[in-house]
Amino acid sequence: MPSPQPICNLSDDALDWQVLLHSGHASPADRERYQRWCQLSPAHAEAGREAEGLWEEIGHAPISQGQATVPEPRSKRRWAMSIAASLVLLIVGYSGWQQMPVWLADYRTAIGEQQRVTLADGSQVTLNSASALSVAFSARERRVRLQAGEA
């Protein structure tokens, strides 16, 4: 723990205090001791201000109201996880969009399954494995569309 030293080491001590206060392990007693250290002399106070300024310049939060605050780091891992999640959603969404006609088909078979289907007009269709068929009958036409697989 930093302690009063000769003036030539005040800068080093002030930096040691900044490291401790921003480490996340500083206790209220540590913060009080830092405030008392800064009040030992004008040189101590100046060294403390310089160290706080240096800490701010290197991108750390200043000590406010005697409380050390540590900024939340911008984690590269969090960024990478966000990109990975976005890619997964994009792939799943694209796949779902591509498979939509199969899911909405009137008749479908699973992998390894075959099925004979009798349509509303009496005609029959045999669906092979992993196939999908959409049917639309009207008074004027009979529309049968193979969405996937073989029929």
Rank of each mutant, 00 (worst) to 15 (best):
43 A>F: 01
26 A>V: 11
13 D>L: 01
61 A>H: 05
45 A>N: 10
50 E>S: 05
23 S>H: 06
24 G>K: 01
46 E>G: 06
9 N>Y: 09
29 A>N: 05
18 Q>D: 00
47 A>Y: 07
22 H>Q: 10
53 G>N: 07
58 I>D: 10
23 S>M: 04
12 D>R: 14
19 V>L: 08
21 L>Q: 10
43 A>W: 01
38 C>F: 01
28 P>W: 11
59 G>V: 08
14 A>M: 06
30 D>P: 00
15 L>N: 15
24 G>F: 04
65 Q>M: 11
68 A>N: 11
23 S>L: 11
60 H>P: 03
65 Q>P: 00
44 H>G: 06
50 E>H: 08
31 R>T: 08
60 H>F: 14
62 P>N: 00
19 V>K: 05
51 A>Y: 04
31 R>L: 09
36 R>S: 11
46 E>L: 15
41 S>A: 12
25 H>G: 04
9 N>P: 12
57 E>Y: 07
34 Y>I: 02
25 H>P: 00
37 W>G: 03
34 Y>R: 06
20 L>A: 05
49 R>D: 08
11 S>I: 02
11 S>G: 15
40 L>I: 11
33 R>Y: 10
61 A>R: 12
22 H>F: 01
47 A>I: 00
46 E>F: 10
50 E>V: 08
60 H>Y: 13
28 P>G: 15
19 V>I: 11
49 R>A: 14
26 A>R: 05
31 R>G: 07
61 A>L: 12
47 A>V: 07
64 S>A: 03
36 R>Q: 10
64 S>K: 14
18 Q>I: 04
51 A>N: 03
60 H>C: 13
65 Q>F: 09
57 E>D: 09
33 R>W: 11
38 C>V: 03
9 N>C: 12
22 H>E: 08
35 Q>K: 07
56 E>V: 02
64 S>Y: 05
66 G>N: 07
36 R>K: 09
10 L>G: 09
67 Q>T: 13
13 D>T: 04
59 G>S: 10
36 R>M: 06
14 A>F: 11
62 P>G: 08
42 P>R: 06
47 A>S: 03
61 A>C: 09
29 A>K: 13
66 G>S: 06
15 L>R: 15
13 D>A: 15
40 L>D: 14
51 A>M: 07
56 E>T: 01
25 H>Y: 09
52 E>I: 02
46 E>W: 07
55 W>I: 03
22 H>R: 09
22 H>P: 00
56 E>G: 00
50 E>A: 13
59 G>R: 05
22 H>G: 15
48 G>P: 06
60 H>M: 10
26 A>Y: 09
13 D>K: 03
43 A>P: 00
12 D>C: 05
45 A>G: 10
32 E>N: 09
64 S>I: 13
22 H>V: 03
24 G>M: 07
38 C>T: 14
20 L>V: 11
41 S>D: 00
63 I>M: 06
35 Q>R: 15
19 V>G: 00
62 P>E: 04
14 A>I: 13
67 Q>V: 15
24 G>W: 02
